[in-house]
């Protein structure tokens, strides 16, 4: 966490959502601090962490907001969807109910987040092979139907955690850079240093946007 706020080209706000106990906080701590706690305390309200990655030689800083899973906190957590350009919607591959609730979380995003938010469905706890309750193909098909990207991760053994964040950040980056080529922002060029948040608003005919070909 040595990166200073001013040493980045892009700043993307991403939210982690999904049912209680699916491992959102551990995905975050694995990605930002390379830490994992088998029993980590429940998240109260919202917690925050950041990490920067490189894409195409650009530094992309992810500002990640980890939200509480319990229904009662929705009123509070929904406030954090504003300005988010990406969402990791997490379920537990060993608990079918957390997968069934994905639809509810999608509705939640539709109601409160920017309509162009990039969503990635994440099946976490892939290390629990013997307890698997959600088939990979089933989730993959669901993701395709709904225009989401999809990945399975394990915060415990680190499988795909970096990749998941890398994929979603790259996807957002592609959309944003496309957008900038198409209609440059007011003024001559962008000045990333001053950009607090970047709104992703691809138009319908942006053909590089993967998720839109499915709609």
């Amino acid at each position: 966490m040595s990166t200073k706020d001013d040493e980045y080209d892009y700043l993307f706000k991403v939210v982690l959502i999904g049912d209680s106990g699916v491992g959102k906080s551990n995905l975050l701590s694995r990605f930002t601090r390379n830490e994992f706690n088998l029993e980590s305390k429940s998240t109260i309200g919202v917690e925050f962490a950041t990490r920067s990655i490189q894409v195409d030689g650009k530094t992309i800083k992810a500002q990640i907001w980890d939200t509480a899973g319990q229904e009662r906190y929705r009123a509070i957590t929904a406030a954090y969807y504003r300005g988010a350009v990406g969402a990791l919607l997490v379920y537990d591959i060993a608990k079918h109910l957390t997968y069934e609730n994905v639809e509810r979380w999608l509705r939640e995003l539709r109601d409160h987040a920017d309509q162009n938010i990039v969503i990635m469905l994440v099946g976490n706890k892939s290390d629990l092979r013997h307890l698997r309750a959600v088939l990979t193909d089933e989730a993959k098909a669901f993701a395709e139907r709904n225009g989401l990207s999809f990945i399975e991760t394990s915060a415990l053994d680190s499988t795909n955690v970096d990749l998941a964040f890398q994929n979603i950040l790259t996807e957002i980056y592609r959309i944003v850079s496309q957008k900038q080529i198409r209609d440059p922002p007011e003024g001559d060029t962008i000045r990333p240093q001053n950009v607090e948040q970047i709104d992703v608003k691809p138009t319908m005919n942006t053909d590089s946007v993967r998720r839109q070909c499915c709609q």
Partner: peptide, 18 residues
């Protein structure tokens, strides 16, 4: 269900609560 999820992870560093 929610209580059952939360109680085991209350104070992970204190043996009493395990």
């Amino acid at each position: 269900h929610q209580i059952n999820i939360d109680v085991p992870r209350m104070n992970p560093t204190i043996a009493l609560f395990q």
